[in-house]
Design a protein around this nucleic acid. Sequence first.
DNA 1: CCATGGAACTCAAGCGCTTTAGTCGCTGGT
DNA 2: ACCAGCGACTAAAGCGCTTGAGTTCCATGG
Lengths: 339, 339
Amino acid sequence: MKDIAQRAGVSESAVSFALNDRPGVSEITRDRIRRVAEQLGWRPSTAARALSGEGSATVGLVVARPAASLGVDSFFLQLISGIQEVLAERQLGLLFQVVEDVTAECAVYRRWWAEHRVDGVLVVDPRTDDPRAELLDELGLPGVVIGALPGSDTGPHPGLSQVRADDAAAMAAIVGRLHELGHRRIVHIAGLPTLAHTDRRIRSLRIEADRRGLAEAHSVTTDYSDTEGAAVTRRVLEQSVPPTAIIYDNDVMAAAGIAVIAGLGISVPRDVSVVSWEDSALCRLTAPWLTALSRDTVAFGRIAARELTALLDGGAARTVQVPLPGLIERGSTAPAHGG
Amino acid sequence: MKDIAQRAGVSESAVSFALNDRPGVSEITRDRIRRVAEQLGWRPSTAARALSGEGSATVGLVVARPAASLGVDSFFLQLISGIQEVLAERQLGLLFQVVEDVTAECAVYRRWWAEHRVDGVLVVDPRTDDPRAELLDELGLPGVVIGALPGSDTGPHPGLSQVRADDAAAMAAIVGRLHELGHRRIVHIAGLPTLAHTDRRIRSLRIEADRRGLAEAHSVTTDYSDTEGAAVTRRVLEQSVPPTAIIYDNDVMAAAGIAVIAGLGISVPRDVSVVSWEDSALCRLTAPWLTALSRDTVAFGRIAARELTALLDGGAARTVQVPLPGLIERGSTAPAHGG
DNA sequence: CCATGGAACTCAAGCGCTTTAGTCGCTGGT
DNA sequence: ACCAGCGACTAAAGCGCTTGAGTTCCATGG
């Protein structure tokens, strides 16, 4: 900046004003300064900026999952690439970290906060009992929760926006469709019991089942892995009166499930219908192809990031709903037959 | 720090020395200062640190792939989680960005460099003609290339380490095994032609084929998607004399391929053997299970990150080889039958 | 008994930017 | 002719840390 000031024949302050679109310099000088800066290929040092009170121009994202269970999902990278689209517009960096559990995640937030490393964070995988909201409140670190915290509609958390998928409505849609097809015995092979959305889906299933008077409707929680998905599928189908439809909380388990079912000599979709709560290439690699709930994960990321930038700009925290995912019917669902 | 200095009854410099394990303070004072710092929950501001000449304690990783093709691979997140393990030990942050293409990637490096945002970078997906190495040289930004640049064994790039998988040897191993099983017609459904390792695999296949006098051995490049994998598989099997073995450059295409093959009424592994160059849960979701080349991607990430920290510590650039991946033989490979 | 040296510690500058409190010169009103 | 007021610009402090050049004090050797 000193260079620029010298070459443009002004003071450093003038340069700062000019380059930050602040009043205090004439348009002529501003232009001149801009030109010199451009010519010199100048970029502000984030460190210096951060030091003098501006933010660090960085937002954080930490995902707390064991390495093994990370790869299976296509969810995260999609989400991140949506987030990036928005952050890139504002030249915001994304500080990314993967840790083992929520405790470690909280430690990371604390550290980032103390080190002034991030201006805000994106929180994923909200839990039924989540310490993170409170921590962020305490630190005064703006954040947006991707997928909603339990119970909090507007949320008692002043600095926390939420971007939520309406899991209840989505579950209702699936159950509605299966009911329409004549299914009266449904099993839901859910994900991690600690996650808030797992809880919501389970609850919604029960409500819908009651409302429609289904003969059977229960949920079993898993760790999202193909292994557990397969094991639970086997167990469920060996019941004396097996279900006629199974809802899987992700694509990996659905695919694993469909393989197991075939192995048992049971036909999909004649004997049992299968729905995957997550669409991906995987859903077209099975035989038959998987009927799946298809949400636009990239858009989800975009929305979340936009919410965060709004917060950083001083906007108030709020809760936004993303569009309801659509049920893409492929070969794995069909009318229930008398059985 | 001022606080700490005051409470410990010393100057700020003493605090700095003490907390950075630099000589110039007695052990007693050092301990006292440490205790006070701890008690106050002090963490150095990265901004201030960076400003006064230390690095930014951050490394960068940018992946240049369209959003759509990101999710299919389990590769990246695995890699990243390996990287993180090592970075976490040193409290280094990972600045992550996904962009559309290499040009944009270069722009990001330039920006990061100008803004002093990162101390070094990890470069993935090296290409046959890669502008990035030269750029990093020019900027003097330390980097480690994950997967090796073409041709450069030691590399003429002073600040660039390389962590390479020995693709040639791996290909040789696969071809060797298939040859042993009696296969004489092999097709290799490769990935993106611009990637350096694609090139190396193709070249290695040709060499091995010549050495062993195979009747047919050729490669077809794709974009790694299930769609192209499926399309190419169909085309290849409709040849007048179809291959008896197919090698796919990733798990997604292999799975898609095996589905297509079944659809054509051809039996795996009786009529055609299938090998996947990448192991994942997906390889156990197909029927039969996929024989796959299994590398430890998490370890790969760890090694790369360690190489980068070595570089940041002032070590010299070097090229390290990761262990040869093993071929896990599952149901998709078998002896070729007379044909 | 003084010079010497080294260990322990302090001073102050400086990293690159922002920002507050000016200074300067001009216009317009009286 | 004089001052208020405004726009354009400068001076300098400060953000939190590092660091090289001191300063002080004590132990040691001649």
